[in-house]
Amino acid sequence: MEGKEGHFTFAPEGETGTCYVYEGPVRLWHWINAGSIVVLAATGLLIAHPFPSVMGEASHHFLMGDVRFVHFVAAWLFGGGFLVRLLWSLVGNEYSRELFHLPLGDGAWWSSLAYEIRWNLFLEKRARKYYGHNPLAQLAMFIFFVLGSVFLILTGGALYAEGLGEGSWADHLFGWLTPLVGQPQDLRTLHHLGMWFILVFVVGHIYMAIREDIVGRQTSVSTMVGGFRIFRK
């Protein structure tokens, strides 16, 4: 089945077929992205709270340097991936756009959102079926993930600019942010808070994805693996 462009759709109650939702690039991106976030959070925390000191000559070690390097590699993957994913939404299928575009003017979307909230509060008896994201997931992804990612990329970029120095490409691209948020230490605090913001999403997101597989009437995790959504009775 195909939804119509520009209109929010959910699957009919009786739907039992399959639907191709996530194209290859989206799936690949999703898992790379998930991995990079885990690495970023781990290395980020190690940057803030480094390993116990190693002794001896400085020239014999590069522990913090490595941790930071891994953070930056993952940051490139994450930031670059985000950009690629954004571009893909221009050429990919309808579902690839859902992440970046909330159909706020669409009454059906809002009522489905209300339905999903009731469903998650155990006020509805049956799960609704969706070809793409359910509106609650979509909203959460937009607020926590899309905005959170932009925030982390900007603040991370501005932090990176501090390292590369004034006049660097990163400074031109992100340097303006620092006086806007206050000063460099504020940047750090905000980048740090951004991490927790995303991690809160990750916990809820993974739970919901797995739960949907179990109690929803459609596949979820396997959809993100194979691309197809299979609806159950």
Partner: peptide, 20 residues
């Protein structure tokens, strides 16, 4: 979710129509 087992006990459609 484990206690209430939503979606399991009631197989009837609660919102029958399609969103189309």
């Amino acid at each position: 979710t484990e206690i209430r087992k939503p979606g399991k006990e009631d197989k009837e459609a609660s919102s029958g129509e399609s969103g189309h």
